[in-house]
Write a protein that binds this DNA or RNA. Sequence first.
RNA 1: GGGCGCAUAGCUCAGCGGUAGAGCACUACGUUGACAUCGUAGUGGUCGUAGGUUCGAUUCCUACUGCGCCCACCA
Length: 884
Amino acid sequence: MLDKNFNPKSFEKNFSFDIEASRRKADGDPFMVLLPPPNVTGSLHVGHALCFTLQDILARYKRLKGYDVLFQPGLDHAGIVTQLLVEKQLYDRGAEKGSVSREALLKEIWFWKESSACAVIEQLKTLGISCDFSRLRFTLDEGSKRAVAKLFVKLYNDNLIYRGERMVNWDPQIRSAISDLEVVEKEVDAQQWYIKYRLEDSNDAIVVATTRPETIFGDVAIAVNPRDRRHKKFIGKNAYVPLIDRLIPIVADEYADSKKGSGAVKITPAHDFNDFEVGKRHRLPIINIMNDRGELNGAVPEIFQYMDRFEARRVVVDFIEKKGQLVKVENIKHMAPFGDRSGAMLEPLITNQWFLDAARLAIPALEVVRNGQVVFSPKHWENIYFEWLNDIKPWCISRQIWWGHQIPAWYGPDGQLFVAETAEEATQKAVNFYGKNSVELVQDNDVLDTWFSSGMWPFIVLGWPQNSEEFERLYSNMMVVTGFDIIFFWVARMIMMGIYATGKVPFKNVYIHALVRDEKGRKMSKSKGNVIDPLVLCEAYGADAVRYTLASMSSPGRDIKMNQKSIEIGRNFLTKLWNAVRFAQINSCLYCSEFDVNSVKHPLGQWIVQKIKTMILDVEVAVENYRFDEAIRLIQQCVWNSFCDWYMELIKPILQSDSLVVAKNCSTNSSVQNTLLKKDIRDVTGWAILQLVRVLYPFTPFIAKKLSGELEVTDMSWPDAAAIDIDGSDSLRCIGRLQEAITSIRSMRQCLGVSPSEKLEISVESASQELIDVVAEYGDAFSRMAGVSVVRDIAGQSIPLVVDSGIIHVGFGDRIDVVEEKKRLNEIKKKFVQIKAESQKKLRNKNFLSKASADVVQEHNDRVKTLNERITQLDHAIKSLELI
RNA sequence: GGGCGCAUAGCUCAGCGGUAGAGCACUACGUUGACAUCGUAGUGGUCGUAGGUUCGAUUCCUACUGCGCCCACCA
């Protein structure tokens, strides 16, 4: 028997994670969900909780449906983030910066990774994410390493990977290159200095505006716009770079914008992406003045050497000012690039890096989305995908850090490059190349961008490059659920690399879920302190409630604004469900396996069976369309409204009374009939609860498991709605009549301020035979729910209550205010007349009749007819009031 | 500068070419044997603005306004 109090902690913790249940089934159609591997660094946020919950709903739903489901878990080594984190821990423990060797650091990270991985998995389990944890993979495990090396070599041999000196975004804090995607632009307060560059052979000077005066040592030209009259005279002349008096040419280039700054721009090809291009066009030299720490290097005058870039900026400005070459300073706001991980201001820097020719891989990746082989939901994310891939730049894949896949490239003593899957292979190549017996090779120090291995994840986890049966079965049959922020980072790369490596798309469906924001709609971030920890929510409300609420708020194309209190939506619903099942238990409504739902004869039973059948079918559609919000709404409505508010209230008299009014046409021994009826209702109720629990299982697995256990049912399969075949239309109409009558009486009671404890007399003599029958059949429930006793003749005065099926007379003793009551009825009539008039107007419109669909015309005809009846009844009721 | 999304009840959001919905909040009443994490009944909306298409527009189209986001630009 269930406890009186619903306490999720009492059972959620008790369910040790069921690995068996999360394993694949041999039969069934294949379906795979690829969990976006969370960073091994740590704690999951609500966004993860949402993302994983939605995937888990899909995985569990498909399992119940009989699919062969693989829900593949994994962890990402998250190169830069993890290395920074562990380094910081080491420094915090007293290690000196720069003193830790590569081997020592890697050892430390591997050690730390073990415990962190466990913590992440525990969080997944707490949320009830039913991955097959026996198959847990890590993006830096041996299998991943082999696959990465293999693909790298293949790409290299196909000239899709190359090494070269290019300008990249450089993070001076991490001291590594990063990819364009890892650059975040932020608006910053800055200053713009106007500096005089003296001209050669003249006392004249040209004024150049710059926000980066420290880079003047790398200046190789000044560019002006050829159509800029102010500067035309300077073109072809030379100017002296301040402080160092190096002569540089003044060139004409469209890049110079006469509206910006002074109209003349200094060209520093080594430290600006645009200047680099201008430099190439004019064959200008490249002078690199910065080292990898963002300090000025040996190419600058000695006093500036090893000076930090920001310090150098101040000093340079100071010197220029003293020399009288500073014209003015402006305070401006402008966008500057920062590293998304370190937060440091980035430097464009020319370095030797490895690049992937993404543009070539993008061609088929674009095609598969265009032709519908891969479908995004919601659809509009495809535009974002196209936009990025259409203009994709070479991807810088090398990082100057240690934690990651070390690049499978080796150098000979003379710098000769050998790219191979293993050191042995590389050595063999070198031996052949040099014609010697042995060669000492040095492996490239760099590691690959973390997203390189992430992009290979769909086939890595399926054992690529081995072409297993599993791979054949599941690859291309998977589903990816993720946030829009990693469409470029991850989704696009999985498609590109998947097609390249295997010739097939890794998945057909990508569902992009909402972004979880705080209650004010701000993005959650540690610095704002508005982060909600899903574990805290699970602790407070239970994991089911968290899952339920997140799913209910997950409507497409809209971000989720949430606060902790919103989890009450789920908690309250589950409490209601819990109590409903408790009620069933108290009344011995258990699931009976011999029970045949199609044999249900009692209208109440037919009614709830019908409601549940419809709900199941609708939920199926909703889930298949990733409308998790819709699914939750449907379930909640069925459970709370149909099952609890109506069905359970209506069956109470049958279950609880020994002397119930015998159903119509039951002429034989009434106690025998009672017992049969009770048994019938109990069976239906037990059956109904089991269906509700099964439908809820994908969404709220813990409570579903607990409740199905209470019903002594272990088999969890999705209810087969198609097998439910009863004609419940009469029951639906009949219970509908009952509902309307009860609601109307309750409403009138409230309106007249009659205490709920006071029984009212009603008479249904003027109603249709159908309503008379229904009231007779459900007399007890009716009396109880409406707080009335049904009589033939009302003792005192009565008010006519007009419902769909006729007039119910309600006795109100001497409380009746005839004038008020007439007014009320007239208001209702007025509304009906108005609606009727609208329909009639349409029906008089020839265009409407000829152009509107037959259904709609019929609907309006029916409406007019129904309203006529009700208006007649209202008139009748008003007239009867006048007789009082 | 280019693009995308959103605008519906006090709040959070569904919906939809044919009589505007839910949850929360609010008001009134209520602890009748599943449930106060509850029940019953209510209050509350010219569906952002202006045009257009249509027999009919909250729904489709266009423009505009406001909010949010992505990409690009960075002297």
